[in-house]
């Protein structure tokens, strides 16, 4: 296994479509709930412990070989907003394309056949990590990091926030990301033994409400 493969997969420039999504930050900015770096940090912390934890556990469980159809259904049940389900599948499809080009594997080809319109992104992320020779902890870290790096980058564009402030937010969140990745892997191991009901289901009501509000706008910068 190559640890550096994690850097390739987690790189914000990995061509998997993430640049067009704000992770809910655009709706929170419009609602006046993010106006500065402190609000951004609070937003990211909340997203990390909810959507980030769930994504990390789904990804780690996929690395551990839990059935992808069950994981995908578990992701549906944990994503009530149809706008977010659509975004997750679209990003999953884009990630799968990039992963198949980067780490060719029959398992990834099979996933593309089974989900032609895309599986939930964290599930694809787990299988991509597996194809890259990475472990469940790597996949969980990647999901946890993506859950906050997307909103941070988007907020730099949305608010013209100082990019150093946004990066400072990510750096301050590092210990929380460690703990979320640990919890995600522990939950994934339980899910591998007991079934997908053991996966975390942490949710942020305003992420769900904001996603539907955002999806109805005629003019917006980001796809979600």
């Amino acid at each position: 296994m190559s640890r550096a493969a994690l850097l390739v997969l987690a790189d914000g420039r990995f061509p998997a479509g993430g640049h067009a999504h704000s992770g809910g930050a655009e709706a929170a900015v419009r609602a006046g709930r993010i106006t500065d770096a402190a609000h951004l940090e609070d937003f990211c912390r909340g997203r990390l412990h909810t959507a980030g934890l769930v994504a990390g556990a789904l990804a780690a469980a996929a690395v551990l070989g839990v059935d992808v159809r069950e994981l995908d259904a578990a992701a549906d049940a944990r994503t009530p907003s149809p706008a977010l389900r659509t975004a997750a599948r679209r990003l999953g499809r884009q990630l799968l394309r990039a992963a198949r080009a980067s780490w060719p594997a029959s398992e990834l080809d099979a996933l593309a056949r089974e989900f032609p319109k895309g599986a939930h992104q964290p599930v694809v992320l787990g299988l991509a990590a597996r194809a890259a020779g990475l472990g469940p902890d790597d996949a969980a870290y990647c999901a946890a990091y993506e859950s906050v790096s997307g909103p941070a980058t988007a907020t730099v564009r949305l608010l013209s926030l100082d990019p150093f402030d946004a990066t400072g937010v990510l750096a301050r969140l590092a210990p929380a990301m460690d703990s979320v990745a640990d919890r995600a892997v522990a939950a994934a191991r339980r899910a591998a033994a007991e079934g997908v009901d053991a996966l975390p289901a942490a949710s942020g009501p305003l992420l769900e409400v904001g996603a539907e509000w955002h999806a109805a706008w005629p003019v917006r910068l980001f796809a979600s």
Partner: peptide
């Protein structure tokens, strides 16, 4: 036999960070 909704909300003192922030309850 199929889970159509599974959601957990954690809030109050000692809950994971950000529970009262813009992503969760604001």
């Amino acid at each position: 036999g199929r889970t159509v909704l599974d959601q957990e909300l954690s809030c109050g003192p000692g809950a994971p960070g950000g529970w009262d922030g813009p992503a969760v309850l604001a």
